[in-house]
Amino acid sequence: MKADERILSKIVEILHQHVSKKTAIRAETNLEADLSVDSLKSMEILAAVEDAFDISIPINVLSDIETVEDLALEIEGLLKEQQ
């Protein structure tokens, strides 16, 4: 399943504010292995994502999110639930 391009590009924009500017970020980029997102950084990123999309992401789903696309799909699902 492919993630919505608009959601993806917004996430990439947010990630660029929190990780090394030099790193190229794509849908398949692994948050931990490629971007070194640790638990502390993940909290900052999630808070920014939640504000950007006006949603709340439960921490229960975090263990299933490995890539940028996983995060985008999760957000897509939460936005659909809200509608």
Binding site: A47, P58, I59, N60
Partner: peptide, 26 residues
């Protein structure tokens, strides 16, 4: 929380603006 399967949301440590925003949304 994990054992009971409740939906868990964190707020920034002692940040009342962050808690307020989350509780309003949820």
């Amino acid at each position: 929380c994990r054992l009971g399967g409740v939906q868990v949301y964190r707020f920034r440590h002692n940040d009342m603006a962050d808690l307020g925003k989350r509780i309003e949304r949820l």
